[in-house]
Every structure is written in C-alpha cells, then in structure tokens.
Amino acid sequence: MNIFELLKEDLHAAKNQDPAATSLFEVALVYSGVHALWSHRLAHAMWQKPHLRGPARLISQATKALTGVSIHPGATIGRRLFIDHGTGIVVGETAEVGDDVLMYQGVTLGGRALSKTKRHPTIGNHVMLGSGAKVLGPVIVGEHSAIGANAVVVRDVPPRSVAVGLPAISRSKDPGATVDPREDFIDPALLT
C-alpha cells in the first residue's frame, strides 16, 4: 500500500466512525486525531533511520503542541486507527496498536518501568479504548475488546472482553463465556 492510499484509508476510517463527520474534506481539514496520526506516520518512518531520530522527535513534539496528541515516533500504529477528540492522548515508545482501533480522548498507553525493554501495551485489532482509559505496562489487550472510560488496565485483557474499573476487571463479551477473574488479584464477589 502506498502512502496516499494509507492516508485516504485514515480519512475514511475517521468519517466512517464519527457520525458527526460530514465529508472527507472536513475530516482532512479539522480532525486533530487524523493530523496527529499522519504526523506520526512520517515521524515513525524517520525513527527507523537512526540519524533521523532527532528530527522525528521534533515532529512528535510539534504535533503534540498543535493537536494535544503525544505519540512517540517509536510506537507502532496499525491501519485505520481513529482518534476521536484527540486531546490528552499519550502513546509510549514501545506501544503497539493494531488495526481498526478506536481511541477516545485522554487515553494513555504508558509504561510502568524505566528499563529499555518492551514497557508499553500491545493493543489488538478491533479494540475500543474509552475516554480517559489508562493501559499501563507491557500488557496485551486482546482483539475485539473494549476498555471502559477511566479504566486502569495493568493486567492482560483476553480477546472479546470488556475491562472496566480501577484496577480494571475483564469480563467476556460473549454470553455464557468465562474469563479468568485472576482470583489472586480480584475479589470474585466483584464479578457478579
């Protein structure tokens, strides 16, 4: 896929997921989440070349100042990410975001360690991250899952689950299915 097809795909993702969007032109002109994503795509390509890492960080910082979205150039972002109302988004260096992800304002994909290892989350395909959600550390959020508004996720979220609360508790989206409640961490009474 060439860069123009990718950028067009980003526009369509935003228009298809936001009922307030009236046209692709409007999305291209005023959607800060789309602008931040496009800027990240450029900065990430530069980040792959060690001699361009400084300029990549400068692009990232300028984008943060203009859009309120802070995506480290080292983060890996999949196709068709839609950042709705981008303000307050933070995505760390080793974060990985899959395809067809919906991210609302105030989401943090952050670290919990200072070591130079994989210290940020991996978000699967078709995941929704609610307003103010914090996903911290090298956790994995499985495909087709949803993280509720203001949830704090510090443990893996199985595929097809909903995680809510502080700390977040995961429940299956599928009727009759069970999700490991991690009794060592969560009071089973909270799961009823």
Results as ranks from 00 to 15, higher is better:
Leu102Ala: 10
His85Asp: 03
Ile89Asp: 02
Glu96Val: 15
Ile89Cys: 06
Glu96Ala: 11
Ser70Tyr: 08
Val97Glu: 02
Ile77His: 10
Val91Pro: 01
Glu93Ala: 07
Thr67Asn: 09
Gly86Met: 10
Ile71Glu: 02
Ile89Thr: 06
Gly92Tyr: 06
Ala75Phe: 13
His85Pro: 07
Ala75Glu: 14
Arg79Lys: 15
His72Ala: 14
Ile83Met: 10
Glu93Gln: 15
Gly86His: 04
Asp99Gln: 00
Leu81Asn: 13
Asp84Thr: 14
Val91Ser: 05
Val69Leu: 06
Val69Arg: 02
Gly88Gln: 04
Thr76Tyr: 02
Val90Met: 01
Arg79Glu: 15
His72Tyr: 10
Val69Lys: 08
Val97Thr: 06
Gly74Tyr: 12
Thr94Asn: 07
Thr87Asn: 01
Thr76Cys: 04
Gly68Asp: 07
Gly88Phe: 00
Glu96Gly: 00
Glu96Gln: 14
Val101Ser: 03
Val69Thr: 14
Ala75Val: 10
Gly74His: 12
Gly78Glu: 09
Thr87Ile: 13
Thr76Trp: 01
Gly78Val: 08
Thr67Ile: 10
Leu102Lys: 13
Val69Gly: 01
Ile71Pro: 09
Gly88Tyr: 05
Ile71Lys: 12
Ile89Trp: 02
Ala95Arg: 11
Gly88Met: 05
Asp99Trp: 04
Ile83Phe: 05
Gly86Tyr: 00
Phe82Glu: 02
Leu81Gly: 12
Gly74Ala: 14
Val97Lys: 04
Gly86Val: 06
Ile89Phe: 07
Glu96Leu: 00
Val91Met: 13
Thr76Phe: 00
Gly86Asn: 05
Gly74Lys: 14
Phe82Asp: 03
Ala75Ile: 08
Asp100Met: 07
Val91His: 07
Ala75Met: 12
Ser70Trp: 12
Thr87Cys: 01
Gly86Ile: 03
Glu93Tyr: 07
Asp100Ala: 03
His72Gly: 13
Gly68Asn: 07
Gly68Thr: 07
Thr67Gly: 08
Leu102Gln: 12
Ile71Phe: 10
Gly78Asn: 10
Arg79Pro: 00
Gly88His: 09
Leu102Asn: 14
Phe82His: 15
Gly74Ser: 13
Glu96Phe: 01
Thr76Asp: 05
Arg79Val: 02
Ile89Ser: 03
Gly78Tyr: 09
Arg80His: 10
Thr87Pro: 00
His72Pro: 11
Asp99Lys: 04
His72Lys: 05
Pro73Thr: 14
Arg80Ala: 09
Ile77Thr: 14
Ile83Tyr: 01
Ile89Leu: 15
Arg80Ser: 13
Thr76His: 11
